[in-house]
Computed example of a mutant assay.
Amino acid sequence: MAVLRVCTLNLHGKQENDDIRFSRIADLLSELEPDLCALQEVVVDGERTTAGRLAELLEERTGEEYYPYFVETHLFYEKYPEGVAVLSRHPFRSTWAADLNDIPIPPLLPRKAAIVEVDVEGNSLIFASVHLDHHENPLVRKFQAEKLLEALDKLSPKDAAVLLAGDFNDTEDSPVVGLLQERGFVDAYRVINDDPGFTFPAEGPKMRIDYVFVKDLEVLSVKRILMDKGLSDHFGVYLEFEVKR
C-alpha cells in the first residue's frame, strides 16, 4: 500500500502572534502533506477552532481537503475552551471522544482523547490525539492511558491498525510509556532513532514528551519537525509508515 504520513504538534494554546505562527505552521506542514495530524492545546477561536483554522490554511496551500475533529476537554484556567483535535485528508468513518477523567488520582485539568477511524485503501486505521495531564504524579498519566486503552478495546474494529499521537507529558522511562509498550504499542521514534529526540521546551529542549505510538504498522521514518521556538513551546513529530497487512 502507499506510504502514509502522520504528525503531532502541541499548538501552545492562544498566543499574540497567532496569525504569523499559524501561517508558518501551515507552510511547513503543507510541504509534508500529512494524511493525519494530532493537535493538542487547540482552542476555540471565535466561531471555529484553531484546528479548523489550520485545516483551512492547509487546504489553501495543498489544494487537498482536510477534515477537522475537535474534542473540548476543559476551560483553560478560566480563559478559553481548550481541547485536542485530529486533522485528516481522509473522511472520517467514525469519531469518538474518550473520557480520561474517572481515575483514582484526579487530573489537574479534565482530559479527553479525540479518536477517529478512517479507511485507507480498504484498511481500517484508528488514530487518537492525546494530551495527558501534567500532574506531578506519573501514575495519573498511566491511569489515563488505561482508560484510553479500554475505550479503544471497545471502539476499535478487530482488524484496525492503531496510532496514538500527542503530548504525553512524560519521558521514556515513565509508567505510561511502559504500559503502552506492555500492551503492544511501539514508540515509533525509537524504532528509527537512537538520539535523545528532545521535544520540549522548544527554547532549549531537555526532554522528549511528544510521541507517536503504533501497533501493527511498519515504521519507515520518523523525525522531529517545526523546530522553531516561535511556532510552539513543543517540537512536532512526523512519521511515515505502512500498514502490516
Rank of each mutant, 00 (worst) to 15 (best):
residue 88 S to E: 02
residue 62 T to K: 09
residue 86 V to C: 06
residue 66 Y to H: 10
residue 43 V to P: 10
residue 42 V to G: 01
residue 71 V to P: 02
residue 51 A to D: 04
residue 95 T to I: 08
residue 82 E to V: 06
residue 56 E to C: 08
residue 76 F to V: 05
residue 60 E to D: 13
residue 68 P to M: 04
residue 43 V to C: 14
residue 49 T to Q: 12
residue 80 Y to P: 03
residue 94 S to N: 13
residue 49 T to L: 10
residue 86 V to H: 03
residue 85 A to D: 03
residue 89 R to K: 08
residue 95 T to Q: 11
residue 85 A to I: 04
residue 43 V to G: 11
residue 47 E to R: 15
residue 82 E to H: 07
residue 86 V to E: 03
residue 96 W to V: 03
residue 77 Y to G: 10
residue 58 L to K: 07
residue 72 E to C: 10
residue 72 E to A: 13
residue 66 Y to N: 05
residue 72 E to T: 11
residue 92 F to N: 06
residue 71 V to L: 05
residue 69 Y to E: 01
residue 46 G to L: 09
residue 95 T to V: 10
residue 90 H to M: 11
residue 66 Y to M: 08
residue 77 Y to S: 14
residue 69 Y to R: 02
residue 72 E to Y: 07
residue 67 Y to V: 06
residue 44 V to R: 13
residue 62 T to D: 10
residue 91 P to T: 07
residue 53 R to P: 05
residue 49 T to D: 12
residue 87 L to D: 00
residue 41 E to D: 13
residue 94 S to R: 14
residue 72 E to W: 10
residue 56 E to Q: 12
residue 75 L to P: 08
residue 75 L to Y: 12
residue 43 V to F: 14
residue 65 E to A: 14
residue 84 V to N: 00
residue 90 H to E: 07
residue 47 E to F: 13
residue 64 E to D: 10
residue 44 V to K: 13
residue 67 Y to L: 06
residue 51 A to Y: 05
residue 65 E to R: 15
residue 56 E to R: 11
residue 83 G to T: 05
residue 45 D to A: 13
residue 72 E to D: 09
residue 73 T to H: 01
residue 68 P to Y: 03
residue 57 L to R: 14
residue 88 S to V: 03
residue 57 L to A: 13
residue 92 F to E: 06
residue 82 E to A: 09
residue 94 S to M: 10
residue 72 E to V: 11
residue 86 V to P: 03
residue 74 H to G: 09
residue 86 V to A: 05
residue 45 D to S: 14
residue 70 F to M: 09
residue 42 V to T: 05
residue 93 R to A: 11
residue 50 T to Q: 04
residue 58 L to A: 04
residue 44 V to L: 12
residue 43 V to E: 15
residue 81 P to H: 07
residue 82 E to P: 06
residue 42 V to D: 01
residue 84 V to P: 00
residue 43 V to I: 15
residue 59 E to T: 14
residue 44 V to T: 14
residue 71 V to R: 02
residue 89 R to I: 04
residue 55 A to H: 00
residue 85 A to C: 05
residue 50 T to Y: 02
residue 57 L to N: 10
residue 84 V to I: 01
residue 93 R to I: 12
residue 49 T to S: 15
residue 73 T to K: 01
residue 63 G to V: 07
residue 54 L to A: 02
residue 85 A to V: 05
residue 55 A to P: 00
residue 64 E to L: 13
residue 92 F to M: 07
residue 77 Y to N: 14
residue 52 G to E: 08
residue 52 G to F: 00
